[in-house]
């Protein structure tokens, strides 16, 4: 798919020098990141460091003041959120944003809509094509829910799920868009330690099964150490360190940011 060239820095997903300020306050300053296909990276930092703002910039919720962003060499700058999703970047939300009055399976099926192949006429007349594609959607959604362990709740309303399952459904819904890059915003927030560990394992598994790169925001540094190939640390909107988990662990700047300057 990618244009294989001699340029080895031509990664799949690249963000360069992304900046945004809100009323004079630099929320994100010159954020740079590159993600290779199927790479699992962590984005960590204390509260208010600008992690979620970066997701909002990448997914087109905010328009950056400056910077560049490309997927497979194609610029995504100025795309609307739904265009970003179509281009292959999916996300979850820190504060769960499910379609709560819809069923679990419908939540997932919404994500298939951008590639729906039937038209309004097929819907009104319920043509063979309508049935074929609807069934196909349903089967794919079931398979996906099975992987996420939600298969037995597929006809329940999303809002009736326990908290941990709601987090899993958020991931399932994002995966259903068939992303090349998956952005997970504190997927383990609010879970107990046992659930957190299980979720991290699922995330590592997802990456292999769905062949997607993953960028994971996490507040808790220890949690991501085990599964990420690379970690970027953010503080006050700026990258203060970036490297392998081992390098990060011993970086004095990181320790300072996390423990505070006495």
């Amino acid at each position: 798919m990618t244009n294989i060239s001699s340029d080895t820095t031509n990664h799949d997903f690249k963000v360069e020098s992304l900046s945004i300020a809100f009323g004079g306050l630099k929320a994100v300053n010159r954020f740079t990141l590159s993600l290779q296909p199927m790479e699992l990276q962590g984005l960590i930092g204390p509260n208010g460091a600008g992690k979620t703002t970066i997701f909002n910039l990448i997914t087109g919720v905010y328009l950056p003041d400056s910077g560049a962003m490309t997927l497979n060499g194609k610029s995504l700058l100025g795309f609307k959120p739904h265009q970003i999703a179509k281009a292959g970047i999916a996300r979850t939300f820190q504060n769960i944003r499910l379609f709560s009055e819809m069923t679990v399976i419908e939540n997932v099926m919404v994500s298939y809509h951008m590639r729906v192949e039937y038209r309004y006429v097929d819907v009104l007349l319920r043509t063979a094509r309508y049935y074929r594609i609807e069934n196909q959607f349903r089967e794919r959604a079931c398979a996906l829910l099975e992987i996420m362990g939600l298969e037995n709740r597929k006809n329940d309303k999303a809002k009736s799920l326990p908290y941990g399952d709601q987090r899993r459904l958020e991931i399932a819904r994002a995966l259903a868009t068939n992303p090349k890059v998956l952005l997970l915003d504190e997927p383990a927030a609010g879970l107990n330690t046992q659930e957190k560990v299980a979720l991290m394992a699922t995330i590592a598994e997802i990456r292999n099964k769905f062949k997607t790169a993953v960028l994971l925001i996490e507040h808790d540094m220890k949690l991501v150490m085990g599964i990420c190939e690379k970690i970027t640390v953010l503080d006050h909107g700026e990258i203060i360190a970036s490297g392998t988990p081992r390098e990060i662990q011993n970086n004095p700047k990181v320790i300072e940011a996390y423990l505070g300057v006495g």
């Binding site: 999703a85 996300r91 939300f93 499910l98 379609f99 919404v110 809509h113 994002a174 868009t177």
Partner: peptide
Amino acid sequence: SYGRAILSVRENEIAAESMG
């Protein structure tokens, strides 16, 4: 699928647009 798209707008606009 069109109906689900319309409902998703009611349920959560921001999530809906993030799902394409």
